[in-house]
Nucleic acid binder design. Structure first.
Lengths: 189, 189
DNA sequence: CGAATTCTTGACTTCAGGGTACAGAACCTT
DNA sequence: AAGGTTCTGTACCCTGAAGTCAAGAATTCG
């Protein structure tokens, strides 16, 4: 029929995640993408239409990863508090490169002026908050967690903590302080 | 001796705060600054040396404002919890234009790759955390707040909540949810 | 094999960002 | 009033960002 693509689009998107994550949307140039994705400019624009469109794909891919990680951490058996702790550490990217969270960074950079960012971030934040809420409700029902707290309120507070921790990570706070912080936030859940 | 400046540099910096706050550093163009500061390009570069230098001045000015606000909220007499609530609402910019916090945005956009941002943000975050810590210690000493919590840990958690709330504000969450969130975070302090 | 189709390469174009230069204006001193 | 000095306005410059395009390469179908 025709010449097949010589690269895997999915894999390329995954690499694009890294690129945008490291540099942010505005600071990433087409040349950066060409260099780090290993494809030509023509292929880039031919396949992904525009820098911004690739950015959207990268954000969604990133969210899918994070959501899967979150589900893995919270869905299994076991006490809720340790699972929450793990989930929060993952989301806060404590151990990783100190790049914060791609979504948080994008919101802070582009805010609600970028519709794609607004949509994806709303989705992601709601998803995380809801997963936290479900976990807290389970923990309360089993008598593990402090009863009487509104699970929605507690979950939104934890979401804010995770987001804040990401920013603090990007600001250069040492991981040791961040894990303490997360533990402190979990004390009264 | 020589021709005097026809504009007030301090006032111009204050305007620059607004400009950078609205658009972020990268997305602000010299033309934006010329238009919104109401001075010519020559004066701009003559007085402020570079876009980045003006940005630094704007960040510091912004921090000074915020720090004064914070001190005003926490230093007076009265119970600590309500004062903390006020302070956090101020810092989270709940009522204002949904622009988040200039420092948080800058960290997320430029991260630690920009030394000025790294310095200012570290300073500011430490300052806020320390003010929170002092307030919590006072509250504990007076028996107002829950005893036994490490004030440093609690303060860092509150800092993270405030930062996260800023991001959520910029992501478009309604103010009503954000005030609830802040109240929820204060429950167990 | 040739044709049709789709991918790749990379030179090229356009335009804006960030800054400089310089001519002229406004002020102070004498 | 003249001169020295500093500010202002604006035209200009250079680089790089973002994207386009045409020519050629790889593939399948007939």
């Amino acid at each position: 029929m025709a010449r097949p693509m010589t690269f895997d689009a999915e894999e390329t998107i995954e690499r694009a995640v890294e690129v945008f994550w490291q540099r942010g949307f505005g600071a990433t140039t087409p040349q950066n993408l060409v260099d780090e994705l290993g494809i030509g400019k023509g292929s880039l624009y031919n396949t992904f239409r525009s820098k911004h469109h690739l950015f959207q794909l990268a954000m969604r891919r990133y969210c899918a990863h994070r959501a899967a990680e979150l589900a893995e951490a919270l869905d299994g058996p076991g006490a809720e508090r340790p699972k929450l702790r793990t989930a929060m550490r993952n989301l806060a990217g404590v151990g990783e490169h100190q790049l914060g969270c791609l979504i948080v960074n994008s919101v802070a950079e582009l805010g609600s002026s970028d519709e794609a960012v607004a949509d994806v971030s709303k989705e992601m934040f709601d998803l995380v908050q809801d997963a936290f809420r479900a976990s807290i409700e389970r923990g309360q029902a089993r008598g593990e967690l402090i009863p009487g707290r509104d699970p929605v309120d507690a979950a939104s507070a934890l979401l804010a903590v995770v987001i804040g921790t990401n920013v603090l990570a990007k600001a250069g706070r040492p991981a040791s302080q961040l894990t303490r912080l997360l533990d402190a936030a979990l004390i009264d859940i």
